[in-house]
Design a binder for these strands. Structure first.
Length: 830
RNA sequence: GCGGGCGUGGCGGAACGGCAGACGCGCCGGACUUAGGAUCCGGUGGGUUCACCCCCGUGGAGGUUCAAGUCCUCUCGCCCGCACCA
């Protein structure tokens, strides 16, 4: 039978302290202005049902950071909320018949909130927000109006990504490999009138300021850089023969313009119809265009997709060479990028080369590399490197790098073109034809056109009595009470916009709102925003590397420009945590490898769950779940329990021992205590190596077990007191409940979480002696203990005086001696 | 194809260029036990011996260095992101 004192009863201890903390409101954000601030933020969750292990990892990491900084004297803002609008709520409502998305969402929020409380995360719940509450989305709408007011929100008809399964349009960022990121259905193109945000206006700044983000992982910065996709080049106009039209083409290689042997338009290019009109090819081309457009994005853009092109029969003129080149239409040219057409330079572009070979189009070399001459007919690939311009009229002999500028300049001079910078980034499409989102605060009036809802009428509330079925039209359109409204401008009959906003909009500014979550007058208070922003540490999954983080950066820059926030970048430091895996794969219901946090907390308690997740791997790396590893952490906490709990009443507070008076085991224990403080402080405060911090605490506990074996009369009670108090303080951020229980148990006052972090004494950590290793010709021959702080010369003397060393070196010539204090001595002999 | 990351025991993972494998899991042994799948203590990379010494070991091949898991060059393998972007 297990004895009672063998195990600690987390099921009693954890709820007890959670209630105690809540009663005393100890996690409320302090108002103390005398201390430095620290804003610690974890990505708020979508209330999908219950917490999963990824959440536990995310919030455990954040909690250690928040608690550590609090104990280190910072005013910490550590809030939590809910990214509560979104499709799953609506889909659940459809599936479960009459359950309203709001009910489903609120139920999930209650469940997940109580789970977070059971984990003992130190949130200031008085600042909780949910993006689906009118008190929040009012400000989402308000922000939309600010963007509109500043010309950054506009409506246009465009070919947009349509997910037939979600029955809504999607942002470019939400489409991966031609399929909907959420439901994996193939995405179609549709022509629709939609609202966009002009994020492209900020492309340059979003790119440029990545350099400022020293506290961000390189990986995320590179992903954003690629997404923005800046490329420098020129737009050059090719007049169409006869018709008086002009084809404007974008190229990054104006230096190869003399090598153009054909021109290709995207099937959707507006000029196509005009060019082919009345020509014999017209029918065939129309059919081809229709065909390409009916193809799904996947088929059209997949790597293996064959390049197919057709001659239109029309020609255009190369303004520089005066040459006549045929115009084609081809499936590989994308209307969305550049100007929707490509100048074909087969000699110097691999894609063009393959295309030209397939259709027998001529290849003209205009860049000569340093090596052998290129023979167009013998070429097996394009030459895409640098070289010297040839066959290029007045530019012959110019290095291609200079040629780029020279040709661009010449075109500008002649009025044939201009230098431009192109971005892959497109404007952010925010309209969604779904119910469960923030309504777009716009009214259509036959007389006045598009009229914004005046700010004092916000929020435009989402009606509750609506049929939410994915019909392809917003369910709000079926709700006359919502749609019909007087025009705010003329008072006549108006119709509300019935689309709702992309939920990424709601989550792109929530971290600002946490500073004034209950302010009903303003989006946030000036004093509060200046005090807390930017976020010092942001923690979340790398899956948000582009969407959420890019949109948030965009909003921050906009809000900075209109002087509503004090910073141009929202998140100073970013930690992207790794995934939680089981059997080498991401946990998922379909794979049946899910470990539920609920079960783990019920079996082992929150402290064990947290400790395991922090101990098993460094935070950025993927973490392999191990039931036995969890067991080990539970065992460790019990070990702490058995060590400290019996000390209740026997461990009276004592002033810290004087290092220099300590000898033997007391000195060793004292050293271990301070070495552990130093290690844990560095690992948590500096590099976020929580795993090695935990292992240092484990070592300290092992040391304490040894120390305890020494008869009480032979050790200094002040050393034990110092060790135990330090241990509980160091453990507090990782395992808050057991630390609190033991802290109070040994009779200390206040909460362990409101104590100052222990400080190490350098003198206590220093070794009395250091071991130096003697190598002869690189091989270890001897080890010698020397007093700490000895000079290099003194050390050499000590090495030479060793008979062992003398024997080794005897009769040989000493070539070199290298001595590094505290490390080793190497003697090179011949 | 381009960009980024990672390769260390049976496993998760430690190692300012300085005794590779901390800590934990697993395994083996001892103690305490009627018993232990509890607890405490000890051992645990491989080889040879089976006490000691010694030799080999961080995906592979070179290089720099008194000294390389760590730095440099090449190479193999895995993971992630982007990908007809003109």
């Amino acid at each position: 039978m297990m004895k009672m004192e063998d195990r600690y009863d987390f099921s009693k201890i954890e709820p007890k302290w959670q209630a105690w903390w809540e009663e005393r409101d100890i996690y409320r954000t302090p108002d103390n202005h005398g201390r430095p601030k620290y804003y610690c933020l974890e990505m708020f969750p979508y209330p999908s049902g219950k917490l999963h292990m990824g959440h536990v990892r995310n919030y455990s990491i954040g909690d250690v950071v928040a608690r550590f900084l609090t104990m280190n004297g910072y005013n910490v803002l550590h809030p939590m909320g809910w990214d509560a609008f979104g499709l799953p709520a609506e889909n659940a409502a459809i599936k479960h018949g009459n359950m309203h998305p709001a009910v489903w969402t609120n139920d999930n929020i209650s469940t997940m909130r109580s789970q977070l409380k059971q984990l003992g995360i130190s949130y200031d719940w008085s600042r909780e927000i949910a993006t689906c509450h009118p008190g929040y989305y009012r400000w989402t709408q308000w922000l939309f109006l600010q963007l509109y007011k500043h010309g950054l929100a506009y409506k246009k008809k465009a070919a947009v990504n349509w997910c037939p399964s979600c029955a809504t349009v999607l942002a470019n960022e939400q489409v991966k490999e031609g399929v909907c990121e959420r439901c994996k259905a193939g995405v179609e193109k549709r022509e629709l009138e939609q609202w966009f945000f002009k994020i492209t206006d900020y492309a340059e700044r979003l790119l440029e300021d990545l350099k400022l983000l020293e506290g961000w992982p390189e990986k995320v910065k590179i992903m954003q850089e690629n997404w923005i996709g800046r490329s420098e080049g020129a737009e050059i106009q090719f007049p169409v023969e006869g018709a008086g039209d002009t084809i404007t083409v974008f190229t990054t290689r104006p230096d190869t313009v003399f090598g153009v042997t054909y021109m290709v338009l995207a099937p959707e290019h507006p000029l196509v119809e005009k060019l082919i009109e009345g020509r014999p090819e017209a029918e065939k081309i129309r059919e081809f265009v229709k065909n390409v457009q009916s193809q799904s994005e996947v088929d059209r853009t997949s790597t293996g997709a064959e390049k197919v092109g057709l001659l239109t029969g029309a020609f255009c003129l190369n303004p520089l060479s005066g040459e006549r080149v045929p115009i084609l239409v081809a499936n590989y040219v994308l209307m969305e990028y550049g100007t929707g057409c490509v100048m074909g330079v087969p000699a110097h572009d691999q894609r063009d080369f393959e295309f030209a070979r397939k259709y027998g189009l001529p290849v003209r070399v205009v860049i000569q590399p340093g090596g052998p001459d290129l023979e167009p007919d013998a070429m097996i690939g394009a030459y895409t490197g640098e070289g010297v311009m040839i066959n290029s009229g007045r530019f012959n002999g110019l290095p291609s790098r200079e040629g780029i500028r020279a040709v661009t300049g010449y075109c500008e001079e002649k009025g044939w073109g201009r230098g431009v910078i192109n971005y892959r980034l497109r404007d952010w499409l925010i309209s969604r034809q779904r119910y469960w989102g923030a309504p777009i605060p716009m009214v259509y009036c036959d007389g006045c056109g598009i009229v914004p809802v005046p700010e004092q009428y916000l929020p435009v509330e989402l009606p509750m009595n609506v049929e939410f079925k994915p019909t392809g039209r917003s369910p709000l359109a079926e709700c006359p009470e919502f749609v019909n409204t007087p025009c705010p401008q003329c008072g006549g009959q108006g119709r509300r916009e019935t689309d709702t906003m992309d939920t990424f909009m709601c989550s792109s500014f929530y971290y600002f709102r946490y500073t004034s979550p209950r302010n009903e007058e303003r989006v946030w208070g000036e004093e509060e925003i200046n005090r807390w922003l930017p976020v010092d540490q942001y923690i979340g999954g790398v899956e948000h590397a582009i969407l959420h983080l890019l949109y948030s950066r965009f909003f921050t820059k906009f809000l900075y420009d209109i002087k509503l926030v004090p910073c141009e970048e929202p998140f100073t430091n970013l930690l992207t945590q790794g995934m939680v895996l089981k059997d080498g794969a991401k946990m998922s219901k379909s794979k049946g490898n899910v470990v539920s946090p609920e079960d783990i907390v019920a079996t082992y308690g929150a402290d064990t769950a947290r400790l395991f997740i922090l101990f098993a791997a460094p935070p950025e790396r993927d973490l392999e779940w191990s039931d036995q590893g969890v067991e080990g952490c539970y065992r460790f906490l019990n070990r702490v329990w058995r060590l400290v709990a019996p000390m209740a009443g026997k461990l009276s507070p004592a002033p810290p021992p004087a290092t220099e008076k300590l000898v033997g085991v007391d000195r060793e224990m004292h050293r271990l205590t301070h070495a552990t403080i130093k290690k844990v402080t560095g690992d948590v405060g500096g590099r976020f190596n929580f795993n090695t911090a935990v292992s240092a605490i484990m070592e300290m506990v092992n040391g304490l077990y040894q120390y305890r074996e020494v008869p009480e009369t032979d050790r200094d009670p002040a050393v034990l007191n110092e060790a135990v108090e330090s241990l509980l303080l160091l453990l507090a951020p990782f395992a808050p409940h057991i630390s609190e229980e033991l802290w109070r148990g040994i009779g200390r006052s206040g909460s362990v979480h409101r104590q100052p972090w222990p400080q190490w004494k350098e003198g206590a950590v220093a070794e009395d002696e250091v071991e130096i290793v003697v190598q002869v010709n690189g091989k270890i021959k001897d080890r010698i203990l020397v007093p700490a702080g000895i000079s290099q010369e003194g050390m050499k003397d000590m090495v030479y005086s060793r008979s062992n060393v003398q024997r080794l070196v005897e009769g040989r010539r000493v070539v070199k001696v290298v001595a590094v204090p505290g490390k080793l001595v190497n003697i090179v002999v011949r």
